[in-house]
Design a binder for these strands. Structure first.
Lengths: 135, 135
DNA sequence: TCCTTTACTTGAATCATTCAGGTTTAGCGC
DNA sequence: GCGCTAAACCTGAATGATTCAAGTAAAGGA
């Protein structure tokens, strides 16, 4: 299924900007809003930053992109959705790397005591230093 | 050991503001900077907001307070440090609740493939709806 | 008690993100 | 294909947590 169908199926209108956002996010690696903006303009010409914010918000709401917000840095977006993967963030350079979960299945998805909460998402971030920053 | 010793031992100077911050954070429950500021002023009178920022930064760097930043909301601080506990955040009201980890020991602290990262912290946030917001 | 370093103060700046209002356009019904 | 309406997009300004800057005060070792 193409991006246009995915977008339409989510009840959103298909526009050149949104298709370009999907392509950019999919091709990139944990891009921030400016990265996405740049990628979109490379593909379809002038698009306002606000349109990128708005579209990312809509696409995120539809579950087509995932948003992560490592502490202290701007929001980043990725196209890998639905699976239960987590992130390694380098304290030195800020690089974000995907990592599958330790436990085979959603690991911490079931904390022993949920205190009555209805939990629908687990957001796991590992902090450390990446190989190239260890020197 | 009292807060003054903890602070001194971390190589920081002991001031009324910092003692008040420790007390406030310990007495409170995932307070944001304004909450801390208010609590500090209640204890020792006028203290600037920037002093609170600065001291929280220093105390956090020393490992005396923990900082959490749920996506989309201002930073919050808590006094429970060193143990491996995580957080439940309510999507509706933003309440933060402590939760011990599913696995007995640091759970996701060892993702199968660390991609060469030296991991020193795992930050786990569960998103859901709290009991009182479920109505 | 003195001195140096650290903490604190006031005031302004930064920057990601959001809000506001007006204009364009996707995509449905005719 | 034509027109309509809501959604998407635009420009421009505001917000708000956080940080920076430069000067003043005070902690704590000599």
């Amino acid at each position: 299924m193409g991006d246009d169908d995915l977008i339409r199926q989510a009840g959103l209108r298909v526009t050149a900007a949104r298709l370009a956002i999907m392509q950019t996010v999919r091709a990139g690696d944990h891009l921030d809003v400016d990265d996405v903006h740049r990628g979109v303009r490379d593909r379809v010409g002038q698009v306002s930053l606000q349109a990128v914010y708005d579209s990312l918000h809509a696409l995120h709401g539809a579950g087509l992109v995932r948003k992560i917000e490592p502490m202290g840095s701007p929001a980043r977006y990725e196209a890998r959705v639905g699976d239960n993967h987590h992130h390694l963030v380098c304290r030195a350079c800020g690089t974000v790397t995907d990592v599958d979960c330790a436990v085979g299945r959603p690991p911490c998805l079931d904390p022993v005591d949920t205190a009555g909460f209805v939990v629908d998402e687990a957001d796991v971030t590992f902090w450390g230093v990446c190989p190239s920053c260890q020197e």
